[in-house]
Design a protein around this nucleic acid. Structure first.
Lengths: 206, 206
DNA sequence: GCTGTTATTGAACGATCGTCCAATACTATT
DNA sequence: AATAGTATTGGACGATCGTTCAATAACAGC
């Protein structure tokens, strides 16, 4: 009792490299979603992870590598969230694109907080080779999933599904951008309606 | 001859405040389009304008104000370029939206270099009140012009033109983003085709 | 030509940046 | 218990950041 009551310290703060890497990646996402570009600071990230500055360069060759890993992570979470929503929706199993459209502007999917981080990733993607490589993987993953979803939803369509996937993701991204930059006071109804109408028109063609 | 031959110096480097302000704004755009986020540096901007560091804060209260002015400037140029293209196109005077779609991915309109700057403006817009105010003006201007264009192009349509304008600009922005981040090696044909097909479908409805 | 105004300069300030590295603390192996 | 290996610390480095300010230079009105 006496020994325990005085202070509750963890016996060890040491983690395995994969765990620590994951913790730093998580801290990076928190910082970027909270502060955007100005949250991209080695010191702020390490403070968020409750870890000293030097540890970043022990587990990552550079800040750039950490940011690229965070980009992969946030895109994987986005991808998995979408898959989970589609699988959980028992109503639209034959037309999973309906599920995607329905939850496009949900909290945790494409909320304005997320944009704060994505804009940072985009800006780095243009000029950094490491980020460009990560972006290519991310884009390929999301696009082929989207093509799968469209194939299930439009089994008889003779449209080019890759082109359709690019159009959908462009529209969704553009609406997300507009929503995040203009519509903080309003709800997401307007943007959701636009996406719904696009879907109706597309399905009626196929 | 002797006096002139030795050196050709401008008699004065002094400019009127509006001229100097314009020069600094121009230098800001050059820096942002060349280097993106890392080009946003008071020293780099003043070097680009061939002016000493201190002058920035003489003509602008802060770097933030200069960036907001540059945001207004680049959007005005974009706006005026669109208007000029539409007016110069004698073929589609009755359907100016066709002109807009046709030149959407031209050099100087929505090229990847421009995205480097816009991404910076977007990232600042999320958290800075000054930038938010500039963005609201910019968005309002472009949206009402787009509504005008759509009104001319779809005189008999009973669709909500504001909603249609939001959909078009979201799609165009999303395709621009995709083009800039993924399609550096390819031409803009694919993205242009998607926009053209959207237009065909939309016109056939109206 | 003199004077008040102001555009312009560039050094200086304190803050923060990413990275490095010697010292330390913890763990696993023997 | 001693040792080797490594996760972790935090101070230090040089660079750069935005802004300030006294000094200077160029102009306008007289």
């Amino acid at each position: 009792m006496l020994l325990c009551g005085t202070a509750l310290k963890k016996k060890s703060d040491r983690l395995s490299p994969p765990e620590r890497r994951g913790q730093l990646i998580e801290a990076t996402l928190v910082c970027l979603m909270r502060e955007g570009m100005s949250g991209l600071s080695s010191r702020k990230i390490c403070a968020q992870a409750q870890v000293s500055v030097g540890l970043l360069n022990h587990h990552f060759a550079s800040q750039e590598d950490l940011v690229a890993a965070a980009y992969e992570e946030i895109s994987m979470r986005y991808h998995h969230t979408l898959r989970a929503r589609v699988e959980a929706d028992t109503q639209n199993q034959d037309s999973p694109i309906k599920t995607l459209v329905a939850c496009a502007f949900e909290e945790g999917i494409m909320c304005p907080d997320q944009l704060r981080a994505w804009v940072v990733f985009w800006s780095k993607t243009i000029d950094s080779a490491v980020m460009r490589a990560a972006h290519d993987r991310i884009n390929e993953r999301l696009q082929s999933y989207l093509i799968d979803v469209l194939k299930q939803s439009l089994p008889n369509s003779k449209a080019n599904l890759r082109v359709l996937a690019i159009e959908y993701s462009a529209l969704a991204d553009g609406l997300w951008l507009d929503w995040s930059l203009n519509g903080t006071q309003q709800t997401s109804e307007l943007w959701q309606t636009i996406l719904n109408q696009w879907l109706e028109r597309t399905l009626s063609l196929g």
